[in-house]
Design a binder for these strands. Structure first.
Length: 572
RNA sequence: UGAGGCGUAGCCAAGCGGUAAGGCAGCGGCCUUUGGAGCCGCCAUUCCCAGGUUCGAAUCCUGGCGCCUCAGCCA
C-alpha cells in the first residue's frame, strides 16, 4: 500500500529553501514552526499549514517546532491548546521535545522592548485606541505623529516599566514602535507593541498586565527559536516589512525569513475561526467535533483518516494565488485511502424483508466472505444465511426504470457471497399499499453467488439474515452548506442562511451482520455498496451502536437515474 | 487617487527563452460476485488583454484590465 499516491511535487517555498541551502544560508539548517493561536480548534486549513511546515522539515533534514502564539489571553484557553496538540499528533506529526509558547518568551520580549526604547525606536503613547485610529491616516493619506512620540528615553523607560507594574489602567497607554507615520504601508505607522490588559493568562496567570502584539512577538519568537523559514498566510504579506524591521533594528542573532502562501478555501465549507466558533456556540452544530465540521476533530469523528488528509494537502499544492479547492478533491483522497483499508461488511439501512419460500425453515448456513478485496491479508469471515433476510428497500422496485438491474417482480439477482434469488411475489399492506415483504425463491446451485450455466445476473445485493441480525443507528451526513460559496448570500443575510437543514439524517433500526456488533471505534468499515462508516466514539454504546457515515461510495446509478429524471446528462 | 500581492482548462497546479506536467471533476469505453474499486481513451494550437524584443515568449520588456490584502491596543 503506497504511503502517498500523489507525488509530492515541489512548490515555490521548497524552491526558496533549496536555493537557500545551495547558498549556504543558515549554516545549512532548516527550521520551521507551526504557530497556532489557542483560540479555537484546528481545521482542514490548518492541516495544509501543518503538512507544509512539518513536511518541509522532514524533506530537508530540518526540524519543526510547535509553538503556541498565545499573546492575547482574552480569547485563548487551555482547552484549545490540548485539542491542538491532539490534532497535530493525530495528523501524524511530531514536535518531539520542541513544544513552545510565545508566553514563555514574555520576559525576553519585554527586554527587547526596553532595548528598542533605548535605541530610540519605541515610545510610550498616551493616545486612546480611538485617537490612534484617528491619527493613523488612511490608505491614501499619511498619519499624524503622536504628541507623545518625542518623549525622552528616560521617560519612556520609566513609563514602560510602570506599565508593567500595573500603575496605569487598561488601555490608557501603549508602547509603540517609532517608525514612520507617513509610510504607505499602514503597518509601519508606529504600530502598537504592547497593550495594558488586566486579564488572566492561561499559562502566566496574573504575572503580566501588559501583553505583546502579534507583529512584535512573532518575529522575535521566531528568532529566539532559530527559525529559518517562517511560513504564514497571504494576509501577512503586508506585515513582512515590519517583521523584518524588528529583526534588523534589534540585530537578533538569527534572521528568519517570512514566506507567505495562500490559505486553503474549500467549497461548501466555512473555515474562518469566527464562523466556526459561531456555529459551535450558537448550536448550529453539536460541538467542535460534530462530524459535519471541517475541524480536524470533526473529520476524525466522521471517519476521515490522517493519510487521506495528508495526501489531499500534497495534491492541492502550495502557491500564492487565492484559490478555492473543490471539496471533491478531499473526498477523492478519503475514498482512496478507505478503499485500501476498510473492512467490508453488510448492513441494511432501510430493511425490506425477503422470505425464501424454497429454503428450509430452520436451516442456517455459514458462508465465506472476503473482508477486503483490495487486501487479501485482511482474510475472510463467516456470515450466517437463512430463510428470512433483509435487503435494502431501495434495491427493490415493483416497476423498475430502464437500466435498473436490481430486484423486481420475476427478476433474478445475486445476493453477495450467497445465492441467486428470484422475486416471485410482492406482499403489500392491504390498507396502505405499502410493501411488507417479498416472497422469493433461491437457486440451490448458485451457492457462493455463481452458477456453471453461464447465466448472466447483473445485480448484486447486500443482505442480512433476520434471525442473526444486529441493530444499529446510522447517521448519514450531507454537506453543511447548500452553496459552493457559503458566503454567497443576498444583501442583509449571512452565511448561516446557507446552512443545509438536512445535513444529518438519523436512521434507526438498521440491520447489521452479526460480526459488526463487535465493531471497534477507529476502524473504518465499508458497508457494501453504500459507503464508508465508523463507530461514533462519542455516542455509541455496546447496548446501542451508532455509526457515522464517513463518505458514500461513488454512485453512478444514482447519477444516471437523476439524469433520467432531470433530462440530459451534459446539463448541470 | 496609496502600498503589497495574484491572474495557465470547470477547480487546484507544474512550467524559470526551445514549442503547455500532474491531480480533481467531466465525458466515452473495458472489466466487475460491491452500479464500488481497477483499467484504457478524450478533455488548453494556447497561458487576463494589447503591443514590443527574439530564429523562437506562458516565460523577457512596455502599457492596460481584473481580482485579493491592508486604516484592531486580534492573530
Amino acid at each position: 500500500m503506497p504511503e502517498s499516491n500523489p507525488p509530492q511535487s515541489s512548490d515555490f517555498i521548497r524552491e526558496i529553501i533549496k536555493q537557500d541551502l545551495i547558498e549556504g544560508k543558515n549554516n545549512g539548517k532548516v527550521m520551521t514552526r507551526f504557530p497556532p493561536e489557542p483560540n479555537g480548534y484546528l481545521h482542514i486549513g490548518h492541516a495544509k499549514s501543518i503538512c507544509l511546515n512539518f513536511g518541509i522539515a522532514r524533506d530537508y533534514n530540518g526540524l519543526c517546532n510547535l509553538r503556541f502564539d498565545d499573546t492575547n489571553p482574552e480569547k485563548e484557553d487551555v482547552e484549545y491548546v490540548d485539542s491542538i496538540m491532539e490534532d497535530v499528533k493525530w495528523l501524524g506529526f511530531d514536535w518531539e521535545n520542541r513544544l513552545y509558547f510565545a508566553s514563555d518568551y514574555f520576559e525576553q520580549l519585554y527586554q527587547y522592548a526596553v532595548e528598542l526604547i533605548k535605541l530610540g525606536k519605541a515610545y510610550v503613547c498616551d493616545l486612546t485606541p480611538d485617537e490612534i485610529r484617528d491619527t493613523r491616516g488612511t490608505l491614501t493619506e499619511p498619519g499624524k505623529e503622536s504628541p507623545y512620540r518625542s518623549r525622552t528615553l528616560e521617560e519612556n523607560l520609566n513609563l514602560f516599566q510602570r506599565m508593567r507594574q500595573g500603575e496605569f489602567p487598561d488601555g490608557s497607554k501603549s508602547l509603540r514602535a517609532k517608525i514612520n507615520m507617513s509610510s504607505p504601508n499602514l503597518n509601519m505607522r508606529d504600530p502598537v507593541l504592547y497593550r495594558i490588559r488586566r486579564v488572566e493568562h492561561h499559562r502566566t496567570g496574573n504575572k503580566w498586565c501588559i501583553y505583546p502584539m502579534y507583529d512584535y512577538a512573532h518575529p522575535l519568537s521566531d528568532a529566539i527559536e532559530g527559525i529559518t523559514h517562517s511560513i504564514c498566510t497571504l494576509e501577512f504579506e503586508n506585515h513582512r516589512p515590519l517583521y523584518d524591521w524588528f529583526l534588523n533594528t534589534l540585530k537578533t542573532n538569527s534572521c528568519p525569513r517570512q514566506i507567505e502562501f495562500a490559505r486553503l478555501n474549500l467549497t461548501y465549507t466555512v473555515l474562518s475561526k469566527r464562523r466556526l466558533i459561531e456555529l459551535v456556540q450558537s448550536n448550529f452544530v453539536d460541538g467542535w467535533d460534530d462530524p459535519r465540521m471541517p475541524t480536524l476533530a470533526g473529520l476524525r469523528r466522521r471517519g476521515y483518516t490522517p493519510l487521506a488528509i495528508r495526501n489531499f494537502c500534497a495534491a492541492i499544492g502550495v502557491a500564492k494565488s487565492d484559490s478555492i479547492v473543490e471539496i471533491e478533491n478531499l473526498e477523492h483522497y478519503l475514498r482512496e485511502d478507505l478503499n485500501n483499508k476498510a473492512l467490508r461488511v453488510m448492513a441494511v439501512l432501510k430493511p425490506l424483508k425477503v422470505i425464501l419460500d424454497n429454503y428450509p425453515e430452520d436451516k442456517t448456513e455459514e458462508l465465506d466472505a472476503e473482508n477486503n478485496p483490495e487486501d487479501f491479508s485482511a482474510g475472510t469471515r463467516k456470515i450466517p444465511f437463512s430463510r428470512v433476510l433483509y435487503i435494502e428497500q431501495e434495491d427493490f422496485r415493483e416497476a423498475p426504470p430502464k437500466g435498473f438491474f436490481r430486484l423486481s417482480p420475476g427478476k433474478e439477482v445475486r445476493l453477495k457471497h450467497a445465492y441467486y434469488i428470484k422475486c416471485e411475489k410482492v406482499i403489500k399492506d392491504e390498507k396502505t399499499g405499502e410493501i411488507r415483504e417479498l416472497r422469493c425463491t433461491y437457486d440451490p446451485n448458485s451457492r457462493g453467488g455463481w452458477t456453471q450455466d453461464g447465466r448472466k445476473v447483473m445485480g448484486t445485493l447486500h443482505w442480512v439474515s433476520v434471525p442473526h441480525a444486529g441493530e444499529a443507528e446510522v447517521r448519514l451526513y450531507d454537506r453543511l452548506f447548500l452553496k459552493p460559496d457559503p458566503n454567497d448570500v443576498t444583501e442583509g443575510q449571512d452565511y448561516k442562511t446557507n446552512l443545509n437543514p438536512n445535513s444529518v439524517k438519523i436512521l434507526t433500526g438498521c440491520k447489521i451482520e452479526p460480526g459488526l456488533m463487535d465493531a471497534k471505534p477507529g476502524t473504518p468499515y465499508q458497508f457494501l455498496r453504500q459507503g464508508y462508516f465508523c463507530l461514533d466514539y462519542r455516542c455509541s454504546t455496546p447496548e446501542k451502536l451508532v455509526f457515522n457515515q464517513t463518505i458514500n461510495l461513488k454512485d453512478t446509478w444514482g447519477k444516471i437515474e437523476k439524469f433520467q429524471k432531470n433530462g440530459r446528462k451534459d446539463q448541470k
